[in-house]
Nucleic acid binder design. Structure first.
Lengths: 234, 234
DNA sequence: GCATCGGATATTGGATCCAATATTGATTAT
DNA sequence: ATAATCAATATTGGATCCAATATCCGATGC
């Protein structure tokens, strides 16, 4: 970060976002984006020097950001060989969804009994954004709003550590999720299911909400499985 | 790591262990040990320069190790303020055990149906070490053997990611677990419960094993809760 | 006396340089 | 031709130095 503005590359589409206060956070965001958008694809080795130069930072904050991503399961690491974008096998994907099932069921169950009006309204707002993005066909915006929708609900569980773990699991499959939203039929279904879940939450029907959201996940995982074998092509 | 042998401090009791191939891994091990043994106590700030000097490494590998520990929840981090040993509230502790309950129940259930003879024998060996350490009153050795016992069983689940998460959760409460083993009555109970679990696993009684191990955890958490308020005193 | 401001100090964040290890490719013996 | 060896190169690991930020503490005004 010797110069205020770097050149354009991985960091190119950094539209109107303002830069985080530390290089490390900046790099973290850019790396996440690069992975979730497919700019860096599963299995790709991460060359530190090239990437550091592209982002216009030194290798030090880059390496720390990579350690964070390693902890989140987005990249793997081999001593003296470097970091690689995690390549999820079909088994890995199923395992991630199984874990999410176990954790989210409990979180949603608790959230249903505790969620307040503000949180419900926040979820409704997120849902409105989901529908908006879906109508516009903006897959990325939809994924982001969708994430907000679910996280808002989960946070009502009062289990912050659990939510953090779920969020991490969620992120680890980001690279594979966009394919799901690409399909218009799936976008429709997501909207329907969200509406049903909101309805059940408003009525404090915990088990109903758990059931609907479990089905919601199941749909996603089967759809992703269908296209998985091999990395998601660019 | 300019000199082969550093001075004595956090790294002092590095008995007969051989040094890992990279400074970062070495630091990671030492930090974990320092936290679990109480050499670094919950809430303590981690001064990088002092610690780096004590371990005879530069701050670079230390910072990367701290990032790893941050991901595992053993330390917290605030930009420009540094790292602190995580201080678990009572609520946090309960949450960790709740998550473990959800994940381990499923893992044990699967493990019971899949565990092979070698894994069973490995668990039995670990259990023998647990009993040995308990008899000798060696709390640290007991904690380590105990960990091997449980991990051996969990690994039979065929869910490596889940096991990794459980291991991380396990580690995050290390600082508080030693108090449990300190009590001879608890040591006795642990041994009994392990034997019962092994027996049920041999008979492929999944639900029985799940039940016994759930009770096993419940005992531990209530015992730890009793002494928790405030950090575990040195 | 108390709060506020400002500078000195401590501590973390980042850049650069050097060392250690792995990878690659040419060379040679079989 | 093929496999093994070894040097050249690429890449990561680590140390040191400098910059940026926060913290601490005394001075100053009310």
């Amino acid at each position: 970060m010797t110069t205020p503005e770097g050149q354009r590359g991985v960091a190119a589409e950094a539209g109107g976002r303002r830069r985080p206060p530390t290089a490390q956070q900046f790099v973290l965001e850019e790396l996440r984006r690069a992975i979730t958008t497919g700019r860096l694809r599963p299995g790709d080795p991460i060359r530190q020097e090239a990437l550091a130069e592209e982002l216009d930072v030194s290798r030090v904050p880059l390496r720390e950001a990579l350690k964070t991503l390693q902890g989140e399961g987005l990249v793997t690491y081999q001593a003296h060989r470097g970091y690689f974008v995690e390549r999820l096998s079909l088994g890995d994907l199923r395992e991630v969804y199984l874990i999410r099932e176990l954790l989210e069921a409990e979180a949603v169950r608790r959230a249903a009994g505790r969620i307040g009006d503000e949180a419900l309204r926040a979820a409704e707002r997120a849902q409105a954004e989901v529908e908006e993005a879906a109508a516009a066909g903006d897959v990325l915006a939809m994924a982001e709003a969708n994430r907000r929708f679910h996280m808002t609900i989960l946070e009502a569980s009062g289990l912050p550590r659990m939510v953090r773990m779920i969020r991490t699991l969620w992120d680890s499959t980001d690279a594979y999720r966009s394919v799901y939203y690409g399909e218009p039929a799936n976008r429709e279904r997501v909207i329907e299911e969200h509406r049903a879940a909101l309805d059940l939450l408003r009525r404090r029907d915990a088990e109903g909400a758990v059931r609907v959201l479990a089905a919601h996940r199941a749909h996603a995982v089967t759809a992703i499985e269908a296209v998985l074998p091999g990395a998601p092509q660019a």
